[in-house]
Nucleic acid binder design. Structure first.
Lengths: 121, 121
DNA sequence: AGTGATTTTGATAATCATTCTCATGAGTGC
DNA sequence: GCACTCATGAGAATGATTATCAAAATCACT
């Protein structure tokens, strides 16, 4: 892991929540370190494909990233306060794959997100 | 409702599934009708704010739209040709509700969509 | 129908996140 | 030091979405 790449992950770790690629880029620059957007995106892509970070999208389509060391999972998001709960859903994974297979689809990905109001809200 | 606007909704109705704004635009043009991207987006935005259409986003951030007064179900969508298969998923419904309840969430809705390449593509 | 006012349209330009390109630089082994 | 590989990052390219704005359609009223 190169220095540039660990800056990206370190930034995410320090934030402890969701950040956009652009925010990460600016944050690293503000620390005086040299980096480029391409590197940030590359690192994030690789980390996402290795399930090191979680990706989700804001309403306007911008991607947000967060460190997640718990493998593939989904989210339960409070639509009021933004609180998120990570969900284990191996049942859903299996279901998605079998549905895809029985319809002749390949390279299947899935989106499963739950929304609601948490206890406080 | 103007003629242009109903073309957009009619296209969605005929498709019965998710379409991107770009697909809708091209589909209307292929029918020989005159339209512009701006109009398609405007119509879609308004319809979304009035809860006439559902919006969700593919992995790459592109927005997909669907008329949303049809009964609740999910889709398996070909990311290449746009073919959609409707999926019965009562198992997923139950799972979503139980997950929500065990986390103290109320008024839960969910987004479950599968993407992949169909046999032809 | 005529007229002036208001709304809608759609071609085009602008924006913004993301990806691509490629010359440069850093690191590694010999 | 030297050759070689691979990551880097500046800038260009891409693609969806949004803003602009003049022309066209529609409306309200006579």
């Amino acid at each position: 892991m190169s220095k540039s790449q660990s800056s990206v992950l370190a930034t995410l770790e320090k934030a402890g929540g969701f950040l956009s690629a652009q925010q990460i880029f600016q944050s690293i620059r503000k620390q005086g370190k040299s980096t480029g957007l391409a590197t940030v995106y590359r690192t994030l892509q690789k980390a996402a494909s290795e399930n090191i970070v979680d990706v989700l999208r804001k309403d306007d389509g911008e991607a947000l990233y967060r460190l997640c060391d718990t493998g593939h999972h989904h989210h339960l998001l409070c639509t009021n306060c933004g609180k998120t709960v990570e969900i284990e859903a191996s049942a859903v994974e299996k279901w998605a794959n079998s549905v895809a297979k029985s319809n002749g689809f390949k390279k299947v990905t899935h989106v499963v997100e739950l929304f609601g109001l948490c206890q406080k809200c």
